[in-house]
Amino acid sequence: MQYALLIHENEAESYPAGEADQAWLDILSAHTAFGGQMARAGVMRGGAGLKSVATATTVRVTPEGRTVHDGPFAETREQLGGLYMIEVDDLDAAIEWARKLPIARNGSIEIRPMLPAPEGL
């Protein structure tokens, strides 16, 4: 089965100096190592790290139309910071990878089964 591991962290708390923070650089190299580990295990199907939430732009859709705003879709304590897509046998295997995933301080990793890709893709 394919799962997305969605990484949520409190940016302000984990990386007070943003992308210049040593913790930011450290987590990037931890993720490089972790991604390599998943690739060697043959489970890695993709993923991306996201730039700081300060760079987010949101297009909000209502029946009246689409409007563009500064900032993430919602102000939350923890923000989406990146995701991995993996292919493993079952939820327990996905949980094992999530347990090992690098997190700077506090955070959450949401595990979501992915819909199968439409045929022909």
Partner: peptide, 10 residues
């Protein structure tokens, strides 16, 4: 069923 909980003894 949908999250893929394994039918295994851990």
């Amino acid at each position: 069923a949908e999250a893929g909980v394994p039918f295994e003894v851990p």
